[in-house]
Write a protein that binds this DNA or RNA. Structure first.
Lengths: 179, 179
DNA sequence: TGACTTTATGTCGATAACGACATAATATAG
DNA sequence: CTATATTATGTCGTTATCGACATAAAGTCA
C-alpha cells in the first residue's frame, strides 16, 4: 500500500472551516499554528488543488464578488467532506500519532466524539511511551559513569520523559475537563 | 542552494560513537531513541553508505574478526569527522531547531561548549516561541465564544504553550545544573 | 500612460524517501 | 544433507516535496 498523502486532507480541513479560499490563502495558513504540524510550498499546493478538483473533493467557488481575475477560489464538496471525515475517523496508532494534533485542529465542536476518541487513544499511547522511555533510562543510565559516557543521549532521554509526562498530564486534564 | 541532507550526518554521528558498524546495525539504531528524531529504511541506508564511501567520509573497516562474508562494516574517516563537527557547529535557528535533539544525541562530553551553545540558543528560540504562542492565544481566544467556535484549534494551542513552557523550563534547569 | 512592483498561479527538474522485489550468505530443522 | 528460514545487502520505480523559473493580472508611482 502506498504511503498516505496528508496534504489533500489538510487542504480539505482548511476548506471545511473557511469556504472560498484561494491557493494563496491556503499557503498563508501554513504561517500560523497549523505550520507547526504541516507545511507546503505553493508549488505543491496548486497542483494538489488541480488534482483534488478532478477527484471531485473540491469545486471552484461560483461566488466571486469582486475581484482579481487570476484568483481562483475553492469550496469543499460533499465527497471532499466525506473524505475528510474518513481521515479524521481513522484510528490513531503509534505510527500516525504525529498527525493527531493536525486532526484536532480540524475538529471544531467541543463535544465531538471523534475528538474525545483521539484524546483517549493518545493517553494510552503516550502512557505506554512514557513507561518505555523510563525503562530505557533505567537500562542505560542507572550509573553516573553511563551518563558521563553519553551525556547528550542522557539529556534527550530525560527531555523526552518530561515531555511525555507533560503530554499525558495535559491529555488527562483536558479529558477530565470536557465531561 | 539545495536542501541540506540529514541522513549522512546521522550516520556519521552513529559511526563516531560506535566504530565498525554495518548497514544493518545502523538500521537497527533507528529502532531506539534516535528513531524519535530521524528514521531511514535500509533502501536509503545502503546507497547512502556507498555515496559516503566515495565521498571519503567513511571507509570499510579492515578489522573483521569473524564472520558472515556478506557483512560490510564501516568506520568514520577524518574527513567524515570534520564534516560531522561542522554540522554540529552550525548555528541553531528557528528553521533547523527540529534537529537540535538529534545533534545533542551525538555530543557525548558533558562539558562540550557546542552542547552548551545549542542549549542556550534553544532557550532563546523557545522563549520567543512561547511568548508568540501566548500572544496568539490572547488574540484568538480571549472570549469563550471563540473557544467554542474552534475548540480543536484552542486545544492544540494550549497544548503547544504547555509544551514550550516545559521545554524552556527543562532547558534552563539543564543549563543551570551543568555549571 | 508607461515603468516597476506585488500578487496569484503555474511549471519543471532534482532528489529524498519508501515500498517492493531480488539475491547471496548463514543458520536451522527435519 | 537437503529444504527452508533468516540475515544483510542491493536495486528499482514511484512519489512527495522543494527550489527555481515563468507568467499574467492588478496595484503603484511618476
Amino acid at each position: 500500500m502506498p504511503k498516505p498523502r496528508i496534504l489533500p486532507n489538510v487542504i480539505l480541513g482548511l476548506l471545511d472551516n473557511h469556504p472560498n479560499m484561494s491557493g494563496r490563502d491556503i499557503e498563508n495558513e501554513f504561517q500560523t499554528e497549523i505550520g507547526e504540524f504541516w507545511q507546503a510550498s505553493h508549488s505543491q499546493i496548486y497542483p494538489e488543488l488541480k488534482r483534488m478538483l478532478t477527484d471531485g473533493w473540491i469545486e471552484i467557488a461560483t461566488e466571486r464578488v469582486d475581484e482579481d481575475a487570476k484568483v481562483i477560489r475553492y469550496d469543499i464538496t460533499i465527497a471532499g467532506h466525506d473524505h475528510l471525515l474518513a481521515w479524521l475517523h481513522e484510528p490513531i496508532t503509534a505510527e500516525n500519532d504525529a498527525l493527531s494534533s493536525l486532526k484536532l485542529y480540524f475538529i471544531h465542536d467541543r463535544h465531538s466524539p471523534t475528538l474525545a476518541k483521539i484524546l483517549r487513544t493518545q493517553v494510552e499511547l503516550h502512557t505506554k511511551k512514557l513507561s518505555h522511555l523510563r525503562q530505557r533510562q533505567q537500562q542505560l543510565f542507572s550509573k553516573d559513569a553511563q551518563i558521563d559516557r553519553q551525556y547528550g543521549h542522557f539529556l534527550i532521554l530525560t527531555r523526552a520523559i518530561e515531555r511525555e509526562e507533560n503530554n499525558v498530564d495535559w491529555l488527562q486534564r483536558t479529558l477530565a475537563g470536557s465531561k
